[in-house]
Amino acid sequence: MAVNFVSLNVVEGEILGLIGPNGAGKTTLFNLITGLYPPSKGRIVFEEKDITAAAPHARCRLGIARTFQLVRPFPQLTVLENVSIGRAYGRDSIKNRLQAEAEALEILEKVGLADRVSEKAHSLTLVHRKRLELARALATKPKLLLLDELLAGLNPSEVSASMELIQSIRNTGITIIMVEHLVKAVFGLSDRIVVLNAGQKIAEGKPAEVANNPRVIDAYLGSETYATH
């Protein structure tokens, strides 16, 4: 069982950081929230509505969007098409294609991809593909955005630019849960942090509290620092 008895609450408008060693079940939790995997037990509640049985696309239309750990834009489609799909099928979707494309273009401007609209997604660099995936998720007009290691593999200047982007997304009122290995980023951005280890929640609280929690140091940070067990 990848995730066991994890109770996770996210408050509207906050950034919740989700950390834990590899294999802790962070991505599995995302897959449960977005409906990619059905849970064998437990409930998923979004805005006081039980969505445990809802299909993945229905959850997206309710306002839950995500990015993938290994980026997955639609490779053979153009940048504009990728984001238009989000606008044409997400929450408050627009069925008129021209209008969906126009709004997609606005979102692409926000993430800095407006000059690449007609390029195929597979021809972009990693940082641009990550931006594109973020733009596609934003185009679904989410209330809750799940970011799965958005900053992994980026260089320092790309990381700080992306951190600003995440902050600006939160300022528009979107709630964010972010899985991140980059300590500086996750502690800098998060209002609260939840720590998972081997499918269990081992700590939860403000970044400063979590950083000093001995269980966290032992399970997560300590695995490298204290090799003697």
Binding site: H57, P73, L77, Y89
Partner: peptide
């Protein structure tokens, strides 16, 4: 191909899971 329906159809071809996550009824 010019309609917005085709966006969903092409998304299904490209990546079913990503399409679902983008609101497309696969």
């Amino acid at each position: 191909l010019r309609s917005s329906w085709s966006l969903g159809i092409l998304a299904v071809r490209e990546d079913e899971e990503a399409a679902q996550a983008t609101g497309v009824n696969v």
